[in-house]
C-alpha cells in the first residue's frame, strides 16, 4: 500500500474544521445540505443496485465530492449549459433533474432521461441545462467551449460549464479548449474536480504537480483554487465567476480539490481498479467529509439537533426509495425503436 504525502499548498487548502457559513441563511444552507444528502444517498442506492446486479453497466460514483456541483448549480439557471463526464450523477442531480427519470436511466429503462439508451455514463436533461455527459475522458470539454461561444454569438447572458477531472486535464484537447476559450473570450467556467486520482494512478505518478490551475495561468485564464469539500467557498467562487460570465467576461477556471471515497468504478470502497489505496488516505479524507463539516457548522450556529437531521435524512431517503422503486417497474427500451435514434429528424 502506497501512501502519498501532499504538498503544502494542498495541505493548507484542505481542512477537517467546521465551515464558515456566515454569509448564508439557514434555509439556503438547509436546502443545499439536503441536496448533498440527496446526491450521496442516491449514489449509495446506485452502488447497491450495481452490487446486486440491478444496474448492468459500470457506475462511477462521486461519494465525497458532493459539495462542488451543489455550490456551482446554486447560481445556474436552466438556460445555462452544463457538460459532464463519466462521473456526473452529482452534476445532474444538483441541477434538479427528476429523480425517478434519472434512476430509470441508470437502470436502462425507456422512461429514463436518455430514453434508456445511455445508462450511467451518458446522461442528458436539457430541461435543467444538462447538455450531456459521456465517458470519453475530456470529450465534452471542447463542446462546452463551443456552447459558450454560441452564447456569445447569440448575445445571450448564459454560461457554459465544463466539468472535468485531474485526469482529463492530461488530454491535449483540453489545453486547446482553454486557449480557444480565452482567445475568444467565451463565457465558460472550466471546473476541475481534482480528486487526486485518475482511475488507479495518483496524480503524482502522472503530473509534476498535484494542482492543475497552473494550466489556467499558462493560458491567461483567471482561476481560483478552492477546498472542494467546503460548500461556502465553492459558492463564493461560483457566484462571482458566473455573474462575471453573464456580464461578458470569461473564461474562468475553478480547481476544487476533493476525494472520492469509493473506487474508480462501481461500489467497492477499497479497490481502485486493482490498486488498493491506503486506508490512511481514506480516513484523512473522510474527516474532511463535505456533508459532515457543513452539518456540524449548522448545528452549532442554528442550534439544530442531530434528531432534526435524522428526520431530514429519513425524508430524503423516502424520496429516493420511491423514485428507485418506481423506476424499477418501467420497461426496457424496444429494439425496433433504436434505429431512429441514429439521426434525429430523419
Amino acid at each position: 500500500m502506497k501512501e502519498y504525502s501532499h504538498n503544502s499548498e494542498l495541505e493548507s487548502l484542505t481542512s477537517e474544521l467546521e465551515i464558515n457559513i456566515d454569509n448564508f441563511s439557514k434555509n439556503e444552507l438547509l436546502e443545499m445540505i439536503s441536496k448533498m444528502i440527496l446526491i450521496r444517498n442516491s449514489e449509495y442506492k446506485i452502488a447497491e443496485g450495481r452490487k446486486y446486479g440491478l444496474v448492468g453497466g459500470p457506475v462511477h460514483l462521486g461519494i465525497g465530492q458532493e459539495a462542488i456541483p451543489v455550490g456551482i448549480s446554486k447560481y445556474l439557471t436552466c438556460k445555462d449549459q452544463i457538460f459532464g463526464g463519466h462521473r456526473s450523477h452529482a452534476h445532474i442531480i444538483s441541477l434538479g433533474v427528476d429523480l425517478k427519470s434519472f434512476f430509470a436511466e441508470i437502470l436502462a429503462k425507456s422512461s429514463g432521461i436518455s430514453k434508456g439508451m445511455g445508462g450511467s455514463m451518458h446522461l442528458f436533461a436539457e430541461s435543467v441545462g444538462f447538455y450531456g455527459s459521456v465517458p470519453i475522458v475530456g470529450g465534452t470539454v471542447p463542446l462546452a467551449t463551443g456552447s459558450a461561444l454560441a452564447n456569445k454569438l447569440k448575445r445571450e447572458k448564459n454560461v457554459s460549464i465544463a466539468y472535468l477531472g485531474d485526469g482529463a486535464i492530461e488530454e491535449g484537447i483540453v489545453h486547446e479548449s482553454l486557449n480557444f476559450a480565452r482567445i475568444n473570450n467565451c463565457p465558460i467556467i472550466f471546473i476541475v474536480e481534482n480528486n487526486l486520482f485518475s482511475s488507479h494512478l495518483n496524480i503524482k505518478l502522472r503530473q509534476p504537480k498535484e494542482l492543475t490551475y497552473r494550466f489556467a495561468k499558462s493560458n491567461d485564464i483567471e482561476s481560483k483554487l478552492i477546498d472542494g469539500n467546503n460548500l461556502p467557498s465553492i459558492c463564493k467562487a461560483s457566484e462571482e465567476f458566473i455573474k462575471r460570465c453573464r456580464n461578458g467576461e470569461g473564461p474562468f477556471f475553478i480547481e476544487a480539490v476533493t476525494y472520492r471515497w469509493l473506487g474508480h468504478v462501481d461500489w467497492r470502497e477499497d479497490i481502485d481498479v486493482g490498486i488498493r489505496r491506503s486506508q490512511k488516505d481514506l480516513i484523512f479524507w473522510k474527516k474532511r467529509d463535505p456533508i459532515l463539516r457543513l452539518k456540524k457548522s449548522l448545528i452549532k450556529k442554528f442550534n439544530l439537533s442531530m434528531d432534526e437531521f435524522k428526520l431530514l435524512e429519513k425524508e430524503i431517503q423516502k424520496k429516493i426509495d420511491k423514485a428507485w422503486n418506481d423506476a424499477l417497474k418501467d420497461e426496457s427500451p424496444e429494439w425496433s425503436k433504436t434505429k431512429k435514434y441514429v439521426f434525429k429528424n430523419n
Binding site: 448492468g56 453497466g57 436502462a108 434508456g116 439508451m117 445511455g118 427500451p333 441514429v342
Partner: peptide, 15 residues
C-alpha cells in the same frame, strides 16, 4: 453489426 452505435441496455445488446 446493425448500422447503429452500440446501445447500453442488456436487452438491446442481445439484439
Amino acid at each position: 453489426l446493425p448500422f447503429t452505435p452500440a446501445p447500453t441496455s442488456k436487452v438491446l445488446e442481445a439484439e
